[in-house]
Design a protein around this nucleic acid. Structure first.
Lengths: 188, 188
DNA sequence: GGAATCATGTAAGTAGTTACATGATTGA
DNA sequence: TCAATCATGTAACTACTTACATGATTCC
């Protein structure tokens, strides 16, 4: 089976929003896709080169005074077709996830309860912050872009982040309770 | 920053449950850790070798008639110490997730609504099946191991799977609704 | 007869991360 | 003066996936 390079499609997708440089693409991914996708420069620059080689994008070098040159990438119609093809193609698998906290908890018996508890507490704290960020984005998208189709789709991805983050917070509370019960049972 | 090889700790963790062969470790991971962790043979066998080289485990070759030899790995006390050290060490980051479905949805404007809708429907169907599996495991763990500490920790990891899967199903319904509203708005 | 299970492993390729290199400008 | 931002990229390394190789046994 030939593995498709998903980074390539992430880049094509971003370019479908408008011509941009590698640097701008990175920022956009960090700001808008971060909760479900991430790319480093080590992936972005070589893959942009590849997109141009294969005719899915074109480059134009822009001189700037005082600042480094920019290389602005534009999606071609061939690139748009390829993107649409991929967007329509059904997803083959549920994503494979790696959760360090669950790996540690699974083997929790090997260490004291307080140590396990502190992993959960830290996770909860981080999750709360993340949720706040998502809620901010949700509010912004609801206010600004009711009529904008792109905003509607972006809202759906943010809602995913919110609903799952809330579930994780609920799990943190439930798990804290379970651990405290285990603790009081031990003391007897 | 030195990256820690988490596969090594997953293997040490499994070995902390009892001596096992690479083949058995793979099965155990598929059965019990699958929803938050996965390892292929390409990771397992070379890493087991490494564990032995570094004194975290020992090997014993068991001859079997009619069947291939087994290499049974046993965790050493040095390995147990290393595992505990890692188990206690705080997690540095929330996991970075890559959700193909959200990546596709984010760029959903490029294709027709029905195409986006079918991604969500397929996802919902798969998620329902996954949830059923988790609920089965939950029931089993609750019945069998109330007194067993390992079961208690395993239950916490399964609960994570259940709560997040339920949230995702909720999201699927919400998203289906949103899309149908967009559709009827378009028709006007 | 054919598929699945038991059991070990390697090779080759793809993906992803981190650190390094450069250097001007802007803002606190 | 120090950090951040703008802007591009590579090299080295680590992680991960897939396919290949072997071969007996057991179950349908």
């Amino acid at each position: 089976m030939v593995r498709e390079n998903k980074s390539l499609f992430a880049l094509l997708g971003v370019l479908s929003l408008g011509p941009q440089s590698g640097y701008e693409i990175k920022k956009l991914i960090e700001q808008s896709l971060a909760h479900f996708w991430q790319e480093g420069y080590g992936q972005i620059y070589p893959n942009l080169k590849r997109l141009v080689n294969e005719g899915f994008a074109t480059v134009e070098i822009q001189r700037q005074d005082g600042r480094p040159d920019r290389k602005v990438y534009t999606i071609t119609s061939k690139g748009e077709e390829r993107l649409q093809q991929w967007l329509i193609y059904p997803i083959q698998q549920l994503p494979k996830e790696k959760h360090e906290i669950l790996l540690k908890l699974f083997f929790g018996k090997n260490i004291g309860l307080e140590n396990n508890l502190s992993h959960v507490k830290l996770h909860k704290q981080r999750m709360k912050q993340t949720l706040d960020v998502y809620r901010g984005i949700e509010t912004y998208l609801k206010e600004s872009g009711c009529d904008n189709l792109d905003s509607q789709y972006q809202l759906m991805t943010v809602r995913y982040g919110i609903l799952t983050a809330e579930a994780v917070l609920q799990w943190c509370e439930e798990t804290t309770d379970s651990m405290e019960k285990l603790n009081s049972r031990d003391e007897k």
